[in-house]
Design a protein around this nucleic acid. Sequence first.
DNA 1: TGCACAAACTAACGAGCGTTAGTATAGCAG
DNA 2: CTGCTATACTAACGCTCGTTAGTTTGTGCA
Lengths: 206, 206
Amino acid sequence: MPPVPEAAISATADEIREAALEQFARDGYSATSMRDIASSVGIKAASLYNHFGSKEAILWDLTLTAFEELLRGRDSAMAKLPDNPSPEDRLACFVTSHVAFHARNSNQALLVNSQLAALTKTHYRKAVAMRAQYEATLREVIEEGVAKGVFSTTDARVTTFAILQMGMAVSGWFRPAGPLTVADLCNIYVELAAKMLTPLPLKCKE
Amino acid sequence: MPPVPEAAISATADEIREAALEQFARDGYSATSMRDIASSVGIKAASLYNHFGSKEAILWDLTLTAFEELLRGRDSAMAKLPDNPSPEDRLACFVTSHVAFHARNSNQALLVNSQLAALTKTHYRKAVAMRAQYEATLREVIEEGVAKGVFSTTDARVTTFAILQMGMAVSGWFRPAGPLTVADLCNIYVELAAKMLTPLPLKCKE
DNA sequence: TGCACAAACTAACGAGCGTTAGTATAGCAG
DNA sequence: CTGCTATACTAACGCTCGTTAGTTTGTGCA
């Protein structure tokens, strides 16, 4: 009996990851069987266990990678900001990285946003903690802007959710072959987010 | 053998609907078994077939009802507007009914927004058509406002998605026992949507 | 009182599930 | 050439799934 690998690294393991990610994102974890995944890779279900210890281990591997890439994208984008960036710049930076991730990695985004409930309790808690840490970044940006008087909002928490969620939804409908580039898309969402936080009064004329 | 009912109307059928709606929304259609639903109601799985022809028939019954209530909510809200309402009023009216539905009927909202893929092809197409009709309402409001010059947007389609989606997300986190009433929540989202569509320039001072 | 019918039950079906055991095979290190 | 390791296979396990058949039970009407 081969030992159960903790984190499989091989060409086959990567094919399994790719096939499982697509099917978990499209059909859901519990509607996808080990036999489905195996046949996408061209092997039998039992052979999956040479690479992953269980079905949930595949989901957790994919979930962890997705969160790492999401957080890394945020970090590398925010690191490029100048010293003492304005809240407006920090907001634009976060929203751009947020929307770009959800546009470019739609399967990872769908996984992270709708399949966490299938994880074991331990893994689920870790995933929720990573998500909370990610969401807190935007909330801090918004609260800093409010404190400095450049943003205005009736409810910072709700506005945070609203901006996060409108970006997440991109993973559900955006297609690279469509009329918009990822850069176009990011600019649209940056503008929408900025307007949501603009201080009143909004109109100058009349 | 009892006849297979097309649309079951009885106290037990309603208990089945309630239990199935909750579990489909929370755990997903394919992670919920007929035995799970039956035991919530206090009967055996086989007895469910006295009320519904199949598992998918339960899902379709719930989906249809949810869409009907969503569309009815929109219609009755829009009907209360005065003659020749302004685009701002129509926007506020739609967003209020949208957010109120997703706050008050979170299970129905979750069902409609994430379990359509489990329907048969025929039912799925009907559901998507109802959703498209619903979404078109907001898009028309936005486009009318843009045409009249009271709204401004870089991309009406994306802005429509953004407003719809930030409201849908309410079903995932809002709890009536929390700090906000449904009316508070609606007002916050109406303000956010209005700001998203406000014509530039946004700032008066400086 | 007896009949009818709705709605519950038990039992079981064939299929598919995640998973394990045991085996075959190919490539590489000694 | 030999043996080890990685990775595939076949076969099967115990279990759960949606669903059906046939039976029992209780209620309300003739």
